[in-house]
Design a protein around this nucleic acid. Structure first.
Lengths: 100, 100
DNA sequence: TTATATTTGCCAATATTTGTCAAGACAATA
DNA sequence: TATTGTCTTGACAAATATTGGCAAATATAA
């Protein structure tokens, strides 16, 4: 299964009839990187998301969320206790939130 | 806030009146590493968990779950959309599960 | 104080990630 | 078939991150 992020990027790019080569050029990276990102072979660097969103006229927060979901998934994907760990992590996240 | 994993290790170790030095010796690593792990300064390597569980007479699955929760937390901790990303990741995890 | 335990900062070795290049696969079409 | 354009893949080096260990600093206890 490809990444949420990659699939969305490909969707956005193709709907605008943009070539990999063109998108890569706008982001100033090699074409192969975008290809791999869209196919889920590689993760984009977090810092590159805002520019990507701008170039694709997409919602930067949506892309950041999908990107983050992929990071989480990469960590837990082969783990037996993924769900349990997610619950534990969730508690900690929201505990922190309420303290502020 | 320290890690879930580290806090639990410290709890297990001190309850058994074991010194950092002793635990480190059993695991064949430097004392400072265990100190850092317990304080959340560092993550233990995943492969070291089973031996650690054995030495502390703890449930390996509990420790693995806490360890994994820390990994997830490390990824999302400063992210605005942590909760949204968790939800997206969660769907993917359980989608995968049901397919098998 | 002295002795012991823990913490911290730093370093070198190792591992991982990143971007580039070049070659290959694939489809459309001349 | 040969050509063209797009996309994919693997190998590689450079940059970055992680790891374990040492030694000094700090805490704790007697």
């Amino acid at each position: 299964m490809a990444t949420q992020f990659g699939e969305r990027i490909r969707e956005l790019r193709t709907k605008q009839n943009m070539l990999l080569r063109q998108l890569a050029s706008l982001l100033d990276v090699d074409t192969s990187i975008i290809s791999k990102v869209e196919r889920g072979d590689r993760q984009l660097k977090k810092e590159q998301i805002p520019l990507l969103a701008q170039v694709l006229k997409a919602d930067v927060e949506e892309l950041q969320t999908l990107w983050l979901a992929d990071q989480i998934y990469a960590v837990v994907k082969d783990e037996k206790f993924a769900n349990e760990a997610m619950q534990v992590a969730d508690k900690k996240i929201n505990f922190k939130k309420n303290k502020k």
